[in-house]
């Protein structure tokens, strides 16, 4: 049994969530949620459509320090903004491979992370860009790094009476660049077998965000500064940082293959971030 409501504003939305008593699901793009609802026809669910809530933050807001994405920021809006591409190349590349044009026109960036899929396409890039999540509840707002937000497959720190209202991504320091790589079984409309984002500072400090290699998307430690033009140094850093990967075998790939591909993709992501052509 599916019920639907369109709250006037965010406090109304929180009340509806409370009333729904654990059965409430926040609806924005619906590209994942509605598939889930259709597959579980007997599960009682209250869809709380917040798209038209009057005090919803704007889809994209740019301040001096950060870019704040609201729930209605969709994947396709990232790719068209040259400023966002200059700041967050890994995020823009990741958002451009989600689903198809029609999916990207509808799929919410915040919705994507709230699903907490281990293979979430945008999470590795958001992790290397130090994104923070803002959660609204009846008690006010709280905010946390994205690393703390992911708890387990399909589970986040956003409790049932709460909703995520913003995703803040700091404008990177001068010289910081990011890159993204993804492996799928076929092009278009497939989940990632493995994905990797890399962030490289002007001093050559590398961090990696890894998808589909653990129960949640992972952010690695920072490396010591390296020269990204030196293939041996890149290989060593990639081996060191990707040691946290602990993938499972499933329908998309075996564990061994995933581990091998994690290193390949991580290396390519570092080179993409450092804007270095891969030696063939």
């Amino acid at each position: 049994m599916v019920q639907y409501c369109r709250p006037r504003d965010l406090s109304d939305a929180l009340e509806r969530l409370e009333e729904a008593n654990g059965r409430g699901r926040v609806l924005v793009g619906g590209t994942d949620l509605l598939v889930h609802v259709r597959r579980q026809p007997t599960e009682p669910v209250v869809l709380i459509d917040i798209k038209t809530a009057s005090d919803l933050p704007p889809a994209v807001e740019i301040t001096d320090e950060l870019v704040r994405f609201g729930p209605t920021a969709v994947m396709s809006s990232l790719a068209v903004d040259p400023q966002l591409r200059a700041w967050f190349p890994a995020l823009v590349d990741a958002s451009a491979v989600v689903g198809s044009v029609a999916i990207r026109n509808r799929a919410s960036l915040i919705g994507n992370i709230c699903n907490a899929s281990p293979a979430c396409d945008t999470a590795p890039a958001l992790l290397v860009h130090d994104a923070r999540v803002t959660i609204l509840s009846q008690d006010g707002t709280r905010s946390m790094p994205l690393t703390d937000f992911f708890l387990a497959p399909g589970r986040t720190a956003c409790a049932s009476g709460e909703l995520v209202i913003a995703l803040d991504v700091p404008i990177p320091a001068n010289g910081f660049r990011s890159g993204f790589q993804r492996l799928t079984r076929r092009r278009g409309v497939d989940l990632a077998t493995v994905s990797a984002a890399a962030g490289v500072t002007d001093r050559g400090v590398v961090t990696l965000g890894l998808g589909a290699v653990a129960p949640t998307p992972l952010l690695t430690a920072e490396s010591a500064p390296i020269d990204c033009a030196d293939a041996d140094q890149v290989a060593a850093v990639v081996d060191e940082l990707t040691a946290v990967a602990n993938p499972i075998s499933d329908v998309r790939a075996g564990r061994e293959y995933r581990l091998a591909m994690t290193r390949v993709l991580a290396k390519r992501a570092v080179l993409a971030a450092a804007q270095i052509e891969e030696a063939s």
């Binding site: 369109r6 590209t31 509605l34 598939v35 459509d49 798209k51 999916i103 509808r106």
Partner: peptide, 15 residues
């Protein structure tokens, strides 16, 4: 004016 998959949109959302 935007392309969508109509199987992933509810009628009630299109008010």
């Amino acid at each position: 004016g935007v392309l969508v998959n109509s199987c992933l949109v509810l009628c009630v959302e299109t008010e």
